[in-house]
């Protein structure tokens, strides 16, 4: 059955634009910049639609989004955990009581911002978007062993940064 290009793109947008946007956010783009980059990913998809295999739409969009993110200005990536800690002041002691959803996103995003780009990509695709390492290896363009190794290092980095954040957030409690 032939699918009209417009229908296919509509479906791609409906099914994937939120995930593409979210992945771009996790790469450190602001919400607005992520929206712009998502649009760009779909424009590229439209131009190359005939090259995208049926069933590979998600992989194409993720791959394109990552490439866009690599070249994008990444404000949040320049922030470090110490900056995140500044936000703790005046909040009280327990993170789950004092931070609203947006603050949680900011704090969590800054944990990711401590990770190197190549590790971050693998981590986000595996942990947040549910891709398998073979899928990630193909999408990122690295051997399977490299993808697995990056994932291991990415998880270590994430856990270390998360542990630091948790310690710092709870520090006033201990006093």
């Amino acid at each position: 059955m032939t699918v009209r290009p417009g229908d296919r793109l509509d479906r791609m947008f409906r099914n994937h634009h939120e995930r593409v946007w979210r992945t771009l956010r996790r790469m450190g783009l602001t919400p607005e910049a992520a929206a712009d980059a998502t649009q760009q990913a779909f424009l590229i998809a439209a131009e190359r639609l005939s090259d995208i295999r049926i069933g590979s739409e998600r992989a194409f969009l993720f791959s394109t989004a990552l490439r866009i993110a690599r070249g994008a200005h990444r404000q949040a990536r320049r922030m470090d955990l110490d900056e995140a800690m500044d936000e703790r002041e005046g909040q009280g002691s327990r993170v789950d009581e004092v931070v609203d959803r947006q603050r949680r996103i900011t704090l969590a995003g800054r944990v990711l911002a401590t990770m190197e780009q190549d590790l971050l990509e693998v981590f986000v695709l595996f942990e947040l978007e549910g891709l398998t390492t073979p899928e990630i290896a193909e999408l990122v363009g690295v051997p399977l062993g490299t993808a697995a190794s990056r994932l291991r290092r990415a998880r270590e980095a994430f856990r270390a940064a998360a542990a630091k954040l948790e310690r710092d957030l709870r520090r006033p409690e201990a006093r």
């Binding site: 634009h17 939120e18 979210r22 919400p31 929206a35 996103i105 995003g109 990711l112 948790e166």
Partner: peptide, 25 residues
């Protein structure tokens, strides 16, 4: 850990919102 899961679930649930989705569309 519970804290790690909390961080990740926060990130996994983030959506562009209606206004941004509408703008993109």
């Amino acid at each position: 850990s519970e804290f790690e899961r909390e961080l990740l679930s926060t990130l996994a649930r983030e959506r562009p919102g209606r206004a941004l989705s509408r703008r993109m569309r």
